[in-house]
Amino acid sequence: MNKEIINRKGARKAQDIPKEVLELLNLGKIETVNLTEWLAIDHLKLIQTNFTEIGISEENIHLISQKIRTQKKPSTMNTTKLVGSTLYESYSKDKTLNSIFDNLSTHLSDSIRCYAPYLKSLNENLSISEKLKESEKLVADNHFGVREVVWMALRPEIDGDLEKSIDILSNWTKSKNENIRRFTTESTRPRGVWCKHISRLKEKPELALPILENLKSDKSKYVQDSVGNWLNDASKSEPNFVIELCERLKKESRTKETEKIIKRETRTIYKK
Score class of each variant (00 low, 15 high):
Glu4Asn: 12
Asn7Met: 11
Ala11Ser: 07
Arg12Lys: 15
Arg12Cys: 12
Glu20Ile: 14
Leu25Thr: 02
Asn26Gln: 04
Lys29Asn: 04
Asn34Trp: 06
Ala40Asp: 06
Leu46Asp: 05
Ile47Ala: 08
Asn50Asp: 09
Phe51Asp: 03
Gly55Lys: 03
Ser57Tyr: 01
Ser57Ile: 13
Ser57Cys: 02
Glu59Gln: 14
Ile61Gln: 01
Leu63Ser: 12
Ser65Phe: 00
Gln71Ile: 04
Lys73Gln: 08
Ser75Thr: 14
Thr80Cys: 15
Lys81Gln: 04
Leu82His: 10
Leu82Val: 15
Thr86Phe: 02
Tyr88Glu: 05
Ser90Ala: 08
Ser99Val: 15
Phe101Val: 08
Phe101His: 07
Asn103Glu: 07
Asn103Phe: 14
Leu108Tyr: 15
Ser111Thr: 14
Arg113Asn: 01
Arg113Cys: 10
Pro117Phe: 00
Pro117Asp: 10
Leu119Asp: 11
Ser121Leu: 13
Ser121Trp: 04
Ser129Cys: 06
Lys131Arg: 03
Lys131Gly: 02
Glu134Asp: 10
Leu138Ile: 04
Val139Ile: 12
Asp141Leu: 07
His143Glu: 07
Glu148Tyr: 06
Met152Arg: 11
Ile158Pro: 01
Asp159Phe: 08
Gly160Leu: 14
Leu162Cys: 07
Glu163Asn: 09
Lys164Pro: 05
Asp167Arg: 14
Trp172Ser: 03
Ser175Leu: 11
Glu178Tyr: 13
Ile180Trp: 03
Thr184Met: 08
Ser187Arg: 13
Arg189Gly: 08
Val193Asn: 13
Trp194Lys: 09
Lys196His: 12
His197Pro: 15
Ile198Pro: 05
Ile211Ser: 02
Ile211Arg: 13
Leu212Arg: 09
Leu212Ile: 15
Leu212Ala: 07
Glu213Gln: 09
Asn214Gln: 13
Leu215His: 07
Ser217Met: 11
Tyr222Asn: 05
Val223Glu: 00
Gly228Lys: 00
Gly228Ile: 10
Trp230Val: 05
Asn232Lys: 11
Asp233Phe: 03
Ala234Cys: 15
Ser237Asn: 05
Pro239Leu: 06
Pro239Tyr: 09
Phe241Val: 14
Cys246Thr: 13
Glu247Lys: 11
Arg248Ser: 13
Leu249Ser: 05
Glu252Phe: 10
Arg254Asn: 13
Arg254Phe: 07
Lys256Gln: 02
Glu257Arg: 14
Thr258Asn: 02
Ile261Gly: 03
Lys263Ile: 14
Lys263Glu: 04
Lys263Leu: 07
Arg264Met: 03
Arg267Leu: 06
Thr268Trp: 04
Ile269Ala: 06
Ile269Leu: 12
Lys272His: 13
